[in-house]
């Protein structure tokens, strides 16, 4: 499902002294099967934007096209439910949405709501559990007995069980330790690769945007501040600073090495061993006599 924003604006609490325009004239396009990162400082409009993709918010101006669904301010609710089955959203701290007595029932909650035939349910649950790397002995446990990391995986499984075509991830790694972050991001990346799932990652972790995204949209103050491939985005240091964003660790280190040693390191998704090799080779070449 292609996604297209056409001149979308959104204002909270219209016509009150508290009214606040969170999105201003947004134009963007996301193609089927892409992995896109939406980055921006807290309050830049990231969360508001993502809620337009499954119709949780309808634009106050302009329109959003998601596959065959066209969303504008006067949409009917019925269509939205069909859209939501196709667009899965993993919210920040998704474990907060768990409520059922068992893991199994919680995962099947979405299936029930979207009237997935009962004979399909078991297979869907099993495959969702496998995708999040949990074993099926958690199925009969209460989700609240599990560890924080496991709870998050159960919540994600509940979204994946609906077999969405588009997956929206809102800060999926918040509050996890570094290893947990790494595991979860790799899990989503595998899903994206193997199922060709359109993935939209909303994050303020530049490292993740750099590592996983094909395309990055930088939001600042409710507008699209920059868009392009990661390499392109992160080469514009000043523009990033305007949006109050940092460089990914590896790029800031490479830039500093280049500055100090006059080298010409260039980011090509190197692993640490490859980067070490390049550093040494360039230093040896450049070495003044």
């Amino acid at each position: 499902m292609d996604i297209q924003f056409e001149r979308v604006s959104y204002t909270y609490q219209m016509n009150t002294p508290f009214s606040y325009q969170a999105l201003k004239d947004i134009n963007m396009e996301i193609k089927t099967g892409e992995f896109v990162a939406v980055v921006g400082h807290t309050g830049s409009g990231k969360s508001t934007l993502l809620q337009h993709i499954n119709g949780l918010l309808l634009p106050t101006e302009g329109q959003v096209q998601v596959g065959n669904f066209r969303l504008s301010r006067d949409n009917k609710r019925q269509d939205l439910k069909k859209l939501r089955e196709k667009v899965g959203v993993v919210f920040q701290y998704p474990e907060h949405q768990l409520f059922e007595e068992t893991v199994e029932r919680d995962i099947s909650f979405g299936l029930k709501n979207f009237q997935v035939p009962a004979e399909e349910t078991q297979a869907r649950i099993a495959s969702a559990l496998e995708k999040v790397h949990l074993s099926d002995d958690v199925l009969q446990k209460s989700p609240f007995e599990l560890s924080g990391g496991q709870m998050r995986r159960v919540a994600i499984a509940g979204v994946l069980a609906m077999n969405p075509e588009v997956l929206i991830l809102d800060e999926p790694t918040a509050g996890l330790d570094p290893k947990g972050q790494h595991d979860i991001m790799n899990m989503f990346y595998d899903l994206h690769k193997t199922k060709n799932m359109t993935t939209i990652l909303v994050t303020h972790q530049m490292n993740h945007a750099l590592n996983y995204a094909d395309h990055i949209f930088v939001l600042a103050d409710g507008r699209v501040h920059m868009k392009g491939a990661p390499e392109q985005i992160f080469s514009q240091v000043e523009s990033l600073e305007e949006a109050n964003l940092d460089m990914p660790d590896i790029l800031s280190l490479m830039n500093q090495i280049n500055q100090k040693f006059g080298t010409d390191l260039c980011y090509k998704r190197q692993k640490p061993d490859e980067l070490a090799k390049e550093i040494v080779e360039q230093l040896r070449e450049n070495k003044p006599l």
């Binding site: 330790d177 570094p178 290893k179 790494h182 660790d249 590896i250 280190l253 640490p272 061993d273 980067l275 070490a276 090799k277 550093i279 040494v280």
Partner: peptide
């Protein structure tokens, strides 16, 4: 289960290679 900072990872590689 702890991960290393990038600079440490690079330093290790520089030592090793």
């Amino acid at each position: 289960g702890l991960s290393l900072p990038l600079t440490v990872e690079l330093a290790i590689e520089l030592e090793r290679q």
